[in-house]
Design a protein around this nucleic acid. Structure first.
Length: 315
DNA sequence: AACAACAGCAACCGCTTTATT
DNA sequence: CAATAAAGCGGTTGCTGTTGT
């Protein structure tokens, strides 16, 4: 059965909003609220707009305390880290950034951050043959998955893999990305892949609930990290200091990718300083809780985890 | 100065999820 | 429990301003 359109497209106005329309919508909502029914709102306000359009305009532009542009290094870091950890769940990412909308974050990522990160990789590959070769190997392995006729990785998943491999390269040119828990959300369950317990639907609910219930930003971020495939299993014990430093150093690498080598020492201001460790150490370890269940991920399980990854991200 | 290419952003589209009947 | 409606969300499009040639 088809679904009835939300509005009469023939009579509904489309395109950019005029200041008059903005004022009508803003005044009405400030006076009466949304009434819990966006579809009916255009009739109440006299706007010749689709209810969805009204909702979007309000949420992304007219709502009080909306911030536009001028993303801070701290916000950059949070966006990148969360993207790597949980993918393109813009509403969740935006929820960690007061005043930012999912649309804003999404646009910012697509137009700036992604290019800044992946662009640097290309630059570096162009200058460092070895690194480029390593990158090519990494990418080829992913492409081979496609050629294998199984399932193609989504662009989002590929970007995340690329970014994590990029970080991995910086950290350990000879190392393998399969040791990176951020790349493989399911690696915490690598030993029980057959169960494939990491379900994207349920996990969405989980993180949404956690984000809604957590009282602090750190908790929100930690929840996101947990959702991203970290240790839900519990009882995994505290990480070693080496593991801890490994993850922490990745923060530094991310900063380097974002702001360049010259600012790497200044990164201390961005993460160690501007955003305190306690603010963003959700992708590090938190008070003895291990968000990463398996750092001992072996190459033998790469393919299985690839499939796990694919299933997680609905590829 | 004119044009093309590019970047940034607002808005739309359509699918999924949630709530209601 | 099923059907339906509405809200939420992410991907994509298209317009506008900027930069390069």
């Amino acid at each position: 059965m088809g679904r009835a359109p939300c509005c009469d497209k023939a009579t509904v106005k489309k395109g950019p909003w005029s200041p008059e329309e903005d004022a009508m919508l803003k005044n009405y909502i400030e006076e009466h609220g949304t009434g819990g029914n966006w579809i009916a709102l255009p009739h109440k306000t006299g706007l010749k707009r689709c209810g969805k359009s009204c909702r979007l305009r309000w949420l992304n532009y007219l709502r009080p305390n909306i911030k536009h542009g001028d993303f801070t290094p701290e916000e950059d870091s949070i966006i990148c880290s969360l993207y790597i950890s949980i993918g393109s769940r813009w509403s969740i990412i935006a929820a960690q950034l007061p005043g930012r909308t999912d649309n804003d974050v999404k646009n910012y990522w697509n137009t700036k951050l992604k290019k800044r990160l992946l662009g640097r990789r290309k630059d570096r590959d162009a200058h460092h043959g070895q690194s480029a070769a390593a990158a090519a190997t990494s990418e080829t392995s992913a492409e081979n998955m496609n050629d294998g006729g199984e399932r193609a990785l989504s662009a989002s998943a590929m970007e995340r893999i690329q970014l994590c491999m990029q970080l991995q390269e910086l950290q350990n040119p000879l190392g393998a990305a399969h040791h990176n828990p951020l790349v493989w959300p399911g690696c915490g369950r690598a030993a029980t892949l057959s169960n494939n317990s990491f379900n994207s639907n349920s996990s969405t609910v989980t993180v949404a609930e956690q984000a809604g219930q957590s009282s602090s930003m750190n908790e929100h971020l930690m929840s996101a990290q947990l959702e991203g495939g970290a240790a839900m299993d519990g009882g995994l014990g505290s990480p070693s200091s080496a593991e801890n430093s490994n993850v922490i150093s990745m923060e530094a690498e991310l900063e380097e990718l974002l702001y360049g080598e010259a600012n790497r020492s200044g990164k201390a201001g961005a993460v160690d300083g501007g955003v305190q460790q306690g603010d963003v150490d959700w992708w590090s370890y938190d008070q003895g809780k291990s968000p990463v269940g398996c750092w001992d991920f072996t190459p033998e399980t790469t393919n299985a985890v690839f499939q796990d990854y694919a299933s997680v991200y609905d590829i």
